[in-house]
Deep mutational scan, measured.
Amino acid sequence: TFYNFIMGFQNDNTPFGILAEHVSEDKAFPRLEERHQVIRAYVMSNYTDHQLIETTNRAISLYMANL
């Protein structure tokens, strides 16, 4: 899942690491979701930090390219 992918960046001092920290603390994050459209919609609806949203979009693109 995307959640498992992004958790691989925990403790990294990178934008993906920052995203992983936010996702791990977000109890409502769709952890079992595999459809990138649902993940993107969730982030757009629940996150207000523009940098975090952009990082999510980049992470989703990388995740999709590696499926």
Rank of each mutant, 00 (worst) to 15 (best):
T1W: 05
T1Y: 06
T1N: 09
T1S: 13
F2Y: 03
F2H: 00
F2C: 04
F2I: 05
F2L: 05
Y3R: 01
Y3T: 01
Y3I: 04
Y3C: 02
N4H: 11
N4E: 14
N4I: 09
F5Y: 07
F5V: 01
F5M: 01
F5D: 00
I6N: 00
I6G: 00
M7G: 01
M7T: 05
M7P: 00
M7Q: 06
M7D: 00
M7S: 04
M7K: 05
M7L: 10
G8H: 12
G8K: 13
G8S: 14
G8F: 08
F9S: 01
F9E: 00
F9A: 01
Q10G: 06
N11C: 10
N11S: 08
N11E: 06
N11K: 10
N11H: 12
N11V: 05
N11W: 09
D12C: 14
D12V: 07
N13D: 12
N13T: 08
N13F: 06
N13S: 08
N13R: 09
N13H: 08
T14I: 03
T14S: 14
T14Q: 03
P15T: 07
P15C: 10
P15Q: 09
P15R: 08
P15N: 07
F16H: 02
F16V: 02
F16P: 01
F16I: 05
G17I: 06
G17Q: 06
G17T: 04
G17H: 04
I18S: 08
I18A: 12
I18L: 12
L19H: 01
L19S: 01
L19F: 03
L19R: 00
L19I: 04
L19Q: 03
L19A: 01
A20D: 10
A20W: 08
E21C: 11
H22Q: 07
H22L: 11
H22E: 04
V23R: 02
V23D: 05
V23I: 15
V23N: 02
S24D: 07
S24M: 13
S24H: 13
S24G: 09
S24E: 08
S24F: 12
E25Y: 10
E25F: 11
E25Q: 15
E25K: 15
D26T: 05
D26G: 03
D26L: 05
K27F: 08
K27I: 12
K27G: 09
K27H: 10
K27P: 14
A28H: 14
A28F: 14
A28V: 06
A28S: 14
F29K: 00
F29Q: 00
F29T: 13
F29A: 03
P30S: 02
P30I: 06
P30A: 03
P30T: 02
R31G: 03
R31N: 04
R31Y: 06
R31W: 06
R31I: 07
R31M: 06
R31K: 10
L32P: 04
L32I: 06
L32M: 13
L32F: 13
E33N: 04
E33S: 06
E34C: 14
E34Q: 14
E34A: 14
R35K: 10
R35Q: 09
R35E: 08
H36G: 14
H36N: 06
H36F: 13
H36V: 15
H36T: 15
H36D: 07
H36Q: 08
Q37I: 08
Q37D: 14
Q37W: 15
V38S: 08
V38T: 07
V38Q: 08
V38L: 09
I39M: 01
I39T: 01
R40I: 15
R40W: 15
R40A: 09
A41I: 08
A41D: 14
Y42L: 03
Y42F: 03
Y42N: 02
Y42H: 04
Y42V: 05
V43A: 06
V43W: 03
V43E: 00
V43Q: 01
M44N: 10
M44Y: 11
M44K: 09
S45L: 12
S45F: 08
N46F: 08
N46K: 08
N46V: 09
Y47W: 14
Y47N: 01
Y47I: 04
Y47D: 01
Y47T: 04
Y47H: 01
T48Q: 12
T48E: 10
T48I: 09
T48L: 11
D49C: 07
H50C: 11
H50K: 14
Q51R: 10
Q51A: 12
Q51W: 14
Q51K: 13
Q51H: 11
L52Y: 04
L52N: 02
L52S: 02
E54T: 08
E54K: 08
E54W: 06
E54L: 10
E54P: 02
E54I: 09
T55W: 08
T55H: 04
T55C: 05
T55P: 02
T56M: 15
N57H: 12
N57R: 09
N57I: 14
N57L: 15
N57Y: 12
N57V: 11
N57C: 12
N57K: 11
R58F: 08
R58I: 10
I60H: 01
I60G: 00
I60R: 00
I60M: 07
S61E: 14
S61Q: 14
S61K: 13
S61M: 14
S61N: 11
S61G: 10
S61H: 12
S61C: 14
Y63G: 00
Y63R: 01
Y63N: 01
Y63L: 07
M64I: 14
M64L: 15
M64C: 12
M64E: 09
M64N: 07
M64V: 13
A65R: 10
A65W: 10
A65P: 05
A65L: 13
A65I: 11
A65S: 11
N66I: 15
L67D: 08
L67M: 12
L67S: 11
L67I: 11
L67T: 11
L67R: 12
L67H: 11
